[in-house]
């Protein structure tokens, strides 16, 4: 007699994902579906996809989905939550979408304490458009728009989103995780579960920043890219919980 110990979570469709080989978008999509599954959240889930590599995320989740204009997903989600307060909304954004064009939207959604869960993919680059510099590109990192390496003088400094947003009063839970190895993936999964639990308990805004890879535009193999994130990514963007007001019953009201 045998038991299935690992399978594709029910919220994912059977559509093959268009992401490049070894791209961690696929892992994060699965973790979202696993987290929602664990919370029994299958009924009223609505997802908001960004502009970027994950623009086609609506093909990979079975729940109702929106495709939002670049940077506007948190505003779209705000509208959704007003129309459907009882829905469970996840917002999926890359670093260009969230920390560049959409900075005002994410800051104000957080400041309003919008009851939504934002999954923020920080791979330090614009993937879909071919590897340009993002607000989270590391100092010295070469991209197609910082070809001799990002310099603070010329290109400004990387933005630490968790640190920035956790200074606001609105957020209930802000954590930065990674998916560079099995242990990190399990931590990331737990953070997503907690984020959705916050939303379910109407504690307010939750954001999980997930350090991710872009093997194609890093110019590395998938495994090298993960190691690069493990070493350089976590150094620039320390992992951890940046804000957690606690869930009901955890005695932290």
């Amino acid at each position: 007699m045998d038991k299935i110990v690992f399978r594709k979570p029910p919220l994912l469709t059977d559509a093959p994902m268009h992401y490049c080989p070894g791209c961690t978008h696929g892992i994060v999509h699965r973790l979202i579906a696993e987290a929602l599954d664990e919370l029994g959240e299958f009924e009223n889930v609505i997802g908001v996809a960004p502009v970027g590599c994950a623009v086609f995320a609506y093909n990979y989740f079975k729940c109702d989905m929106f495709q939002a204009a670049h940077g506007r997903a948190p505003a779209v989600a705000t509208g959704i939550k007003r129309a459907r307060p009882d829905s469970t909304v996840f917002v999926y954004q890359g670093d260009g979408d969230l920390a560049s064009i959409g900075m005002a939207e994410i800051v104000h959604a957080a400041a309003r304490g919008e009851n939504m869960t934002v999954v923020f993919i920080n791979n330090g680059i614009y993937g879909m458009t071919g590897g340009q510099m993002a607000p989270t590109t590391l100092e010295g990192q070469k991209t197609t728009t910082s070809q001799s390496g990002r310099s603070a003088k010329e290109h400004g400094n990387p933005i630490k989103v968790c640190e920035m947003l956790s200074a606001l009063t609105g957020p209930a839970y802000i954590a930065r995780v990674s998916v560079h190895d099995v242990k990190a993936v399990k931590t990331a999964r737990a953070a997503l579960v907690r984020g959705f639990a916050m939303q379910k308990a109407e504690r307010g805004f939750s954001l999980i920043e997930i350090l991710s890879t872009c093997p194609t535009n890093f110019g590395m193999t998938p495994q090298q890219a993960l190691c690069w994130v493990r070493d350089h990514g976590t150094a620039a963007y320390p992992l951890g919980v940046y804000k957690d007001i606690g869930l009901p019953g955890e005695g932290r009201e």
Binding site: V48, F66, V76, A77, G79, K81, A83, R84, S87
Partner: peptide, 11 residues
């Protein structure tokens, strides 16, 4: 974009 969200969700 908030209108896009709310109206897209049926309101």
């Amino acid at each position: 974009n908030m209108v896009y969200g709310a109206a897209g969700a049926g309101a």
